[in-house]
Design a binder for these strands. Sequence first.
DNA 1: TCCTATAGTTAGATTATCTAATTACATTGA
DNA 2: TCAATGTAATTAGATAATCTAACTATAGGA
Lengths: 184, 184
Amino acid sequence: MKRKPAKEYTTEQQLPRLGTSPYLKLMERTASSDTNLNSAHLGLIMLWLGDNILDMVDIDLAAFDITESKLDLLLLLSLHADQELVTPSSIADRLGIRRSSVTALLIWLEKKNLIVREPYAKDGRMTHVRISAEGSTLVNQILPTFWSTCASLVDELDKEEQAVFQKVLVKLNASVEERLGSGR
Amino acid sequence: MKRKPAKEYTTEQQLPRLGTSPYLKLMERTASSDTNLNSAHLGLIMLWLGDNILDMVDIDLAAFDITESKLDLLLLLSLHADQELVTPSSIADRLGIRRSSVTALLIWLEKKNLIVREPYAKDGRMTHVRISAEGSTLVNQILPTFWSTCASLVDELDKEEQAVFQKVLVKLNASVEERLGSGR
DNA sequence: TCCTATAGTTAGATTATCTAATTACATTGA
DNA sequence: TCAATGTAATTAGATAATCTAACTATAGGA
């Protein structure tokens, strides 16, 4: 979670906005010779943009008193609601986090009655996790806003730009998912 | 900071990879009628990609025992090293976080001798913050890897794709920065 | 039946945030 | 000139999301 300072008396003296160029100059000076500077520039802006987008979504979700991680988990449970067995372990595996981290999320969600944990009869060590009716209701309340925020991110692109952008994004995301070994 | 579970005995049973399509179906069902579904799809992938990219960079930086936030701050100090006065307040303002959060970062960085805090003679309430020689050295060690990671993110795009992508990214980032009121 | 593997949780830590309170200095106006 | 008020920085205490390591309980095989 990040960024949304309310007021806190705005400071008089500020740092000048430097823009991108000093970063590029620094890059020229410090990048290894086999690094393509254009690519690095592109990657850098992607990184910044990614950061900013996450912030925007966080701000949006804050209104629903939930975070992106938790919504992510609720969506996962939603989409696997037909599954006979959804365990903390498999969730951890999918989200790329530790089981104990999942436990922490589940405790929070269960406290709010958004999920249900049920002992799994066929194997006493396991627990089946599912989204509750209340959880589904919340997700359905959140999603319209969430999609509209997603859409607003790329609103100002014209159709042609969107088309190329889409192709590129899908490609990049696939390769990054592969590199990380994660993926939906 | 996120994701890089070491081993923790991989689970036998796993959740099936669903891919994007169930998300899109869900979107069709739950998006408000005035939300453009293509845009929302695009935004969603951008969000996922942004998340994944942050993870990648975090993993990279972990080798240097520093996080993105802290590198960000060190870079900021680097680029404003000529400035007479760089205060915690102005840093907070620029990073879009609270002064107390900056204090926490500074304490950590100072403990590692990466920055120096000096009382500001012209106004006893203020503190001038600058990067130390050691800090600069570290930054110079990190940056080659950092730039190469940035570059690797978009490596597989051909020149044409890169060109369009660049144009689009710059545009989007500008608008998101404006919406958030942040920006470098 | 005993040993070991696995699932889940708990305990305790770290990082990055926040708000509210505190401390110290600066400015201003009666 | 000094008391009230404003501002800068820090501290105290909280929450969120993560981690590792240790623990508990169950399962399953030799």
